[in-house]
Structures are given as structure tokens and as C-alpha cells.
Computed example of a mutant assay.
Amino acid sequence: MNHPRFFGYGSLVNFDTHSYPEPKAAKLQGWRRIWRHTNIRDFAFLSVEPHEGTVLLGATALVPNADFEALDEREFAYARRPVAHQVTPEHDEVVVYEVEEGYFAEPSTAHPVLLSYLDVVVQGYHRLFGDDGVKHFFDTTMGWESLPVLDDRDAPLYPRACLLTDKETALVDAYLKERGQPQG
């Protein structure tokens, strides 16, 4: 019997942020990553949306005992979408979490990206896929335009913040600079 898995494309790619069993690299076809602004949080966070032709690198892991309750709690405001036929390596049941439309808010500079959150995501991509994985993350994430980044590294607001190596910090900073992302 195959146990259900989830596809992670943000903080769930960083295995230091969870203890879900058997995490491994994977690809998701037909979806793209996007920064979402919502009416329930003061900060932008990552989601996905269907997008033909896009392939996302990410990770899958087992949902313990096929019980989605704890994962659903972690991914509050997200809806589970079945994507088994779009994920490689293949599994009988795989889901991805997408921010529910009812929570969408208009993009605004009032909803910055937390640098501590971005650091966690980039660290996960770097550890799993190397420098190319970090480039892939930045290249396949939509919604960067005029999106400020709040530098909270010294006092992280993200609850699962991780300490980065000097190289990981330099990668994040270089990609933000390349995109002209304002930090403050």
C-alpha cells in the first residue's frame, strides 16, 4: 500500500522545519509558485496555482498514518489539491496545498515577504538541489514585482526560522539584489 504524500514547494522543502517521514526530491508539473497576499496575515506567503508548462522542483514526504489533520493545521488557509498524476516520482496519492481563493487580498506593499521565511525556503532548495535549485526557486516564483522584503533576520517573525550558513545568506541576498527587491 502506498501512503499518501504531500508536495512541498516552500518551507516544506526545508527538512529542518518538519519531521514528516521519507522526504525526497520531486517535481510537480502544471503548477507555478506565487507570492500571495491574504486578508488573514500581515505578510505575503507562498502558494501555487495551475500553470500549464511549468515544472516546479520541490519535495514530497509521507503523511503519517494517512492523517492530514496536523498538516492541514500547519497549512491553515490552504486547500489540498490532488496532484498524483503530475508528480514525479509517481505515487498513488499526492496532494499540494494552494491558498484558498476566499483568503486572497489585492497585492500590496503593505504585505511584505519575511526574510526569515525566505531564508528557510532558500536553505531548503540549496540543501536539496544546490545552487541550481536556488536559481530555480527564484526563476519559478511569480509576484516579486514591487514586493518588499522585511529584514527580520535579527529577530525572526517566522516561527520556523533557521540559521543559514554564510553561503546561503549570500545566495538569498544576491538573488534579492538581482531582482531589485527593496529590503527594510
Rank of each mutant, 00 (worst) to 15 (best):
D67V: 05
R153K: 14
N65E: 06
E101W: 01
A61F: 04
Y158K: 05
F104C: 07
V87M: 03
G30K: 00
V13C: 03
F138H: 14
F45L: 12
H111L: 14
V172S: 09
T17V: 12
N2M: 15
L128I: 10
V87F: 01
Y175P: 05
V122E: 10
W144S: 09
Y103H: 13
N2S: 15
A25R: 10
P4H: 00
Q181I: 07
E73M: 11
P82D: 07
F137C: 03
E73G: 14
T17W: 06
Q123F: 05
H126G: 01
G143I: 09
G124D: 08
W144M: 07
L62D: 01
Y103A: 09
T165F: 08
F138I: 12
M1K: 08
L57R: 15
T140E: 09
P50D: 06
C162P: 15
A174R: 11
R127F: 04
A84T: 06
F68Q: 00
A155S: 03
R81K: 13
E69Y: 07
H136D: 09
S47N: 09
R36V: 11
H51I: 09
T140H: 14
N39P: 15
H126F: 05
E22W: 05
Y125L: 02
L147F: 09
Y158N: 06
G102A: 13
P107V: 13
V48G: 00
D131Q: 12
S47H: 08
D42K: 10
E49I: 14
L114K: 12
T165P: 14
Y97L: 02
G10N: 07
C162A: 15
R5M: 00
G53D: 06
D166T: 13
P182M: 11
V96L: 08
G53I: 10
V134L: 06
G130D: 00
R179Y: 05
E168Q: 15
D67C: 11
R32K: 11
